[in-house]
Structures are given as C-alpha cells and as structure tokens.
Measured scan of single mutants.
Amino acid sequence: MDGTRTSLDIEEYSDTEVQKNQVLTLEEWQDKWVNGKTAFHQEQGHQLLKKHLDTFLKGKSGLRVFFPLCGKAVEMKWFADRGHSVVGVEISELGIQEFFTEQNLSYSEEPITEIPGTKVFKSSSGNISLYCCSIFDLPRTNIGKFDMIWDRGALVAINPGDRKCYADTMFSLLGKKFQYLLCVLSYDPTKHPGPPFYVPHAEIERLFGKICNIRCLEKVDAFEERHKSWGIDCLFEKLYLLTEK
C-alpha cells in the first residue's frame, strides 16, 4: 500500500471551527459572476446526480424540485425535460440570464411583489422559475412545498455562521416524503479558508438530524488541478440523501 486515501476511508478533519467566522457578502458573489470567477459551475452537470437520477425519480412526473443557490445549473433542465417543475433561487441576475441563454430557453421576467426590487424569471414553458433574491428572503414569497431539493454548491457556499438559518429555510420548503439530495466537500479547512466551505458529517447531523434521516450514498475523489491553488492536495465530495423521519 502506498498510503493513498480512497473514497471509502475519508477521515473527518478535527479543526472544524477554523472557518466559522468566514463571510462572503452577496455583493462579492455577484462580483464573481461579473468577473467570470465561476469555476464552481459544471458545464456537463453533476455526474453523481446523473448516475442516481432515475433511481431517485422512480419514474414519477410532476414533482416540484428546488435548487438553492442555483446559478446556471444545467441540471435544472434535466428535471424540466422529465416533466418536473423547477424552482431556483440565485442572487446573480447575470447567472440566471446565462442559464436561459445557454439552454436556449425563452423566458419572461416579473417583479417579486413580496420582495421589493427583486425579480423572478420564468421559462415560456412555465416549468422553470428562478427567483433573483437572497435565499433568506425566499420564504416571504409563499412558493409552496417541494418534493425534492438538489443542494450542490449551496450549503458549502453559505457562510458558516448562517447555516442554521439556511437549514431552517430548507425545512420550511420541504413537503411530505421529501428527498433532499446534498453534496458537501471534505478537505483540510486549515489550508483553505473557503468558500466552498468544509462541511463535516457531524455538521450535517447537527443541522438536519432532528428532522431528517441522513444517509451518505457515495464518496468520490473530486480533486482537480485547479484545487492546488487552494493549498490542498486532497478533496473529496460526498452525496447524501436526507429523508423524512
């Protein structure tokens, strides 16, 4: 054995408090879109979701699917093309516009009456609605409950000090017999300040354990050449399924 860690023996890093005071403002996230600093976007979609999607959907149609901090995630069109209703929230209007443009979807925009100064973008087909606002303002819009949440790049982007508020927001959107698919990253948080932030299993239990059954479905090596600039040499991604207790 050469000592290389595999996707099945990932350790939890003990120094989980080192990132707790890290803060990125909404304006800084918007600047990332304006300046093209969106390496977190996956042009081909998320491979773990693609692998498990049909198993999760079980042939159902007409589900309501929520994408927190959606950006221009191509997976939104995957669900819409399968007959589901997609709702996303994203602070960057540019990111939302790029989604519709890159997916060749016509759309309209209208003000969100409950949140002055914000807009919702709706596909002409009517099954994709993307709200351009802070996720913490979203419950004011009465958008209803969801059958499924796809959380990739959301919890790991939320400032650590806001995670409890974020989890409570997610709980307010969950319908009966929900499936909450959650991706988190595992790396040494003493070497990279984030975002994306390190979210250990214990944190998921703390945030969601009282209401959800929590199961880790898969762990994969997600390290890429660009991650060397973070000062790390190891990065794993974990896919969790959260269901109603």
Rank of each mutant, 00 (worst) to 15 (best):
T25N: 14
F178A: 10
L69G: 04
C212R: 02
T118L: 06
F236C: 04
F100R: 00
S125V: 10
L63V: 10
E109H: 03
K119A: 05
G45I: 13
F146A: 02
K77T: 09
E93G: 06
D81L: 04
T118G: 13
S14F: 04
G83Q: 03
E11D: 15
A222I: 04
V18P: 11
E110R: 08
F236V: 15
T113W: 12
Q22G: 10
P111D: 13
S134F: 02
L49D: 03
L207M: 14
T38N: 08
K145P: 08
K77W: 02
L173Q: 04
P68F: 00
D9H: 10
G175L: 07
P200H: 15
T16E: 13
C183G: 05
I149G: 00
G153M: 12
D31M: 07
G153T: 07
R226F: 11
I149A: 05
C183T: 12
T190D: 04
Q42S: 09
S186E: 11
T141W: 08
P160K: 07
C70M: 08
N142K: 03
A154V: 01
L63M: 06
H41K: 02
F66C: 06
F100V: 01
G88D: 01
A154L: 05
I211N: 15
R140T: 09
Q44V: 14
S106T: 15
T25G: 07
E43L: 10
F99R: 01
S124P: 14
Y198I: 14
T118F: 08
Q179P: 00
G231Q: 15
L239R: 05
R215H: 14
P189W: 09
L24K: 13
K177Q: 15
H227Y: 13
I232R: 05
T38W: 09
G194T: 11
M170V: 12
E98N: 15
L26V: 06
Y13K: 09
L105Q: 11
N159E: 06
G88F: 00
Q30F: 09
I112R: 04
I143E: 04
E237H: 13
E28Y: 14
E205D: 14
W150K: 00
K219F: 08
H84W: 05
Q103P: 01
L53F: 13
S92N: 06
I211A: 15
G194K: 13
N21R: 08
I232C: 05
L241E: 13
S134N: 12
E93W: 06
S7H: 03
D31F: 07
A73R: 05
P116A: 06
G59D: 12
E27P: 06
L24S: 10
L26R: 07
Q30T: 12
F171Q: 10
Y107L: 03
K32G: 08
F223I: 15
T190W: 13
Q97S: 12
L185A: 03
T169K: 05
R64G: 01
Q47S: 08
D188Y: 05
P196I: 07
Y13N: 13
V199G: 00
I135V: 08
D147I: 00
G83T: 02
H227K: 13
G62M: 13
G45S: 05
P196F: 01
C70P: 08
P200I: 07
D188A: 06
M76S: 01
S123G: 10
H41E: 09
H227P: 07
T169M: 13
S61P: 12
H52T: 10
G175T: 15
Q30K: 02
Q44S: 12
F56P: 04
D2G: 10
K238D: 13
L173M: 13
Y240P: 00
N213D: 12
G153S: 06
Y180E: 00
D188M: 08
T118P: 09
Q179W: 07
R163Q: 07
I135M: 11
L8C: 13
F99V: 02
F99D: 00
L94E: 13
T141R: 08
K164W: 13
L94Q: 15
T113K: 01
Q22D: 15
S129N: 10
S124E: 08
I115G: 09
K72W: 02
A202R: 15
F40P: 06
S129C: 04
Q97C: 14
P193L: 08
N142L: 06
L173D: 02
I128L: 06
C132A: 13
R226K: 13
K176C: 10
G194S: 07
P189F: 07
G231A: 09
K228M: 01
K164V: 06
L155W: 04
A80W: 01
S134T: 08
S7I: 10
L174H: 00
T243A: 12
I135K: 01
K177G: 13
K60N: 13
L49I: 05
L182V: 07
C132Y: 02
Y131V: 03
I128Y: 03
S106C: 03
R226Y: 12
S125M: 15
K122R: 11
E237A: 04
A80D: 04
I211G: 13
T38S: 10
T55M: 11
T38P: 08
A202P: 14
E205W: 06
K145V: 09
K228C: 10
W29V: 04
Y187W: 05
N159K: 05
E244S: 12
P160Q: 03
F136S: 04
Y180L: 05
D151A: 01
D162W: 10
K238A: 14
L24H: 07
S14V: 08
L69T: 06
I211K: 12
S108W: 11
F223S: 14
S14K: 13
K191M: 07
C133L: 10
S124V: 13
E218C: 14
I232L: 10
H227E: 09
S106N: 04
W29P: 05
D15V: 11
H41Q: 05
R215K: 05
P111I: 15
E237P: 03
T141I: 08
A39V: 08
C216R: 11
A80H: 03
T6C: 07
A39Q: 12
E225Q: 15
F136M: 04
G3A: 10
E224G: 10
N35T: 13
K145E: 15
E75R: 00
G88K: 01
D9M: 05
W150F: 13
D31S: 13
Q103A: 13
C133T: 12
V120T: 10
T38M: 06
V220G: 09
Q47I: 15
A154Q: 01
E90P: 03
F40Q: 03
V156Q: 07
C165E: 12
Q42G: 07
S92G: 05
V199E: 01
N142H: 12
L207H: 00
P196C: 01
S106A: 14
A80S: 11
R82N: 06
M76F: 01
I211L: 08
Q97L: 05
M170Q: 02
A154E: 00
N159I: 02
F171P: 02
P193M: 15
Q47W: 11
T25D: 13
K32P: 03
E11K: 12
G83I: 01
G161T: 13
K72D: 05
D151P: 01
D221N: 10
N213G: 12
V156S: 07
Q47R: 10
R206N: 01
D188R: 04
H192A: 07
D31V: 10
V199S: 02
V18G: 11
Q42A: 09
T16N: 10
T38E: 06
D54P: 14
L26A: 07
D9L: 02
T101V: 14
W78E: 05
G36R: 13
E43N: 02
A167R: 11
N159Y: 06
K122D: 00
V156D: 13
T101M: 06
I204R: 00
G62W: 06
F178L: 03
A39H: 08
E237F: 15
E205K: 03
T38G: 05
G126Y: 07
F171C: 10
L57G: 10
E102R: 05
R82C: 08
A154I: 00
G71C: 03
K177F: 10
K50S: 10
I91H: 06
G126W: 03
E218S: 02
Q47L: 14
T243S: 13
E109A: 14
M170L: 13
G36N: 06
F171E: 02
P189N: 00
F223Q: 01
K245M: 10
L69P: 04
L26K: 04
D151W: 00
L155E: 09
F79L: 12
S124W: 09
M76A: 03
K32V: 13
F100A: 00
K210S: 14
Q22T: 05
